[in-house]
Deep mutational scan, measured.
Amino acid sequence: DNLVIALHSYEPSHDGDLGFEKGEQLRILEQSGEWWKAQSLTTGQEGFIPFNFVAKA
């Protein structure tokens, strides 16, 4: 599955970004460039995340 774990917390800075906490698990929905579309397994919310803040779970 496309699961990743957050290496750092991220505060959203643009509409459509997904904020998350360090250690949170996310499911990657789309990989494109440096911003990936993801869904939080904690909150169920979707949005874009910086790819370098996460690692394969």
Results as ranks from 00 to 15, higher is better:
1 D>R: 09
1 D>I: 11
2 N>A: 08
2 N>D: 11
2 N>E: 10
2 N>Y: 14
2 N>G: 08
2 N>P: 06
3 L>E: 04
3 L>W: 09
3 L>I: 15
3 L>S: 03
4 V>F: 15
4 V>I: 05
4 V>R: 05
4 V>Q: 04
5 I>D: 01
5 I>F: 09
5 I>Y: 10
5 I>C: 08
5 I>L: 07
6 A>K: 01
6 A>I: 03
7 L>H: 06
7 L>K: 05
7 L>Y: 04
8 H>Y: 14
9 S>A: 11
9 S>E: 05
9 S>D: 10
9 S>W: 06
9 S>T: 12
9 S>M: 06
10 Y>R: 07
10 Y>I: 03
11 E>D: 08
11 E>P: 07
11 E>R: 13
11 E>S: 13
12 P>N: 04
12 P>F: 04
12 P>G: 08
12 P>D: 02
12 P>Q: 06
13 S>L: 15
13 S>K: 15
13 S>V: 15
13 S>C: 15
14 H>N: 12
15 D>P: 15
16 G>K: 08
17 D>L: 13
17 D>C: 15
17 D>Q: 15
17 D>F: 15
17 D>M: 14
18 L>F: 06
18 L>K: 03
18 L>N: 01
18 L>Q: 01
19 G>W: 06
19 G>H: 08
19 G>I: 04
20 F>N: 00
20 F>K: 00
20 F>Q: 00
21 E>F: 11
21 E>I: 13
21 E>H: 13
21 E>M: 13
22 K>Q: 10
22 K>V: 09
22 K>Y: 06
22 K>P: 04
22 K>A: 11
23 G>W: 05
23 G>P: 00
23 G>D: 06
24 E>S: 04
24 E>N: 03
24 E>C: 05
24 E>R: 00
25 Q>P: 10
25 Q>L: 15
25 Q>S: 10
25 Q>V: 15
25 Q>H: 13
26 L>G: 00
27 R>Q: 06
27 R>P: 00
28 I>Y: 00
28 I>E: 00
28 I>H: 00
28 I>K: 00
28 I>A: 00
28 I>F: 00
29 L>S: 02
30 E>R: 07
31 Q>W: 13
31 Q>Y: 14
31 Q>C: 15
31 Q>R: 13
32 S>K: 13
32 S>H: 14
32 S>F: 13
32 S>M: 13
32 S>E: 12
33 G>V: 03
33 G>N: 05
33 G>S: 05
34 E>Y: 15
34 E>R: 13
34 E>P: 12
34 E>I: 13
34 E>M: 13
34 E>D: 13
35 W>V: 08
35 W>S: 07
35 W>I: 08
35 W>G: 06
36 W>A: 10
36 W>N: 01
36 W>H: 02
36 W>V: 10
36 W>Y: 10
36 W>K: 00
37 K>C: 12
37 K>Q: 06
37 K>G: 02
38 A>N: 00
39 Q>H: 06
39 Q>F: 08
39 Q>G: 03
40 S>V: 03
40 S>F: 02
41 L>V: 11
41 L>S: 03
41 L>A: 05
42 T>F: 08
42 T>A: 14
42 T>G: 07
43 T>I: 01
43 T>L: 01
45 Q>F: 09
45 Q>W: 07
46 E>I: 15
46 E>D: 06
46 E>C: 14
46 E>W: 10
47 G>W: 04
47 G>F: 05
48 F>Y: 14
48 F>N: 09
49 I>R: 00
49 I>W: 03
50 P>V: 05
50 P>R: 07
50 P>Q: 06
50 P>L: 06
51 F>R: 15
51 F>T: 07
52 N>S: 11
52 N>E: 13
52 N>K: 07
52 N>Q: 12
53 F>V: 06
53 F>R: 06
53 F>K: 07
53 F>N: 04
53 F>M: 11
54 V>D: 03
55 A>E: 14
55 A>I: 13
55 A>D: 09
55 A>H: 08
56 K>F: 14
56 K>T: 12
56 K>N: 11
57 A>T: 12
57 A>R: 07
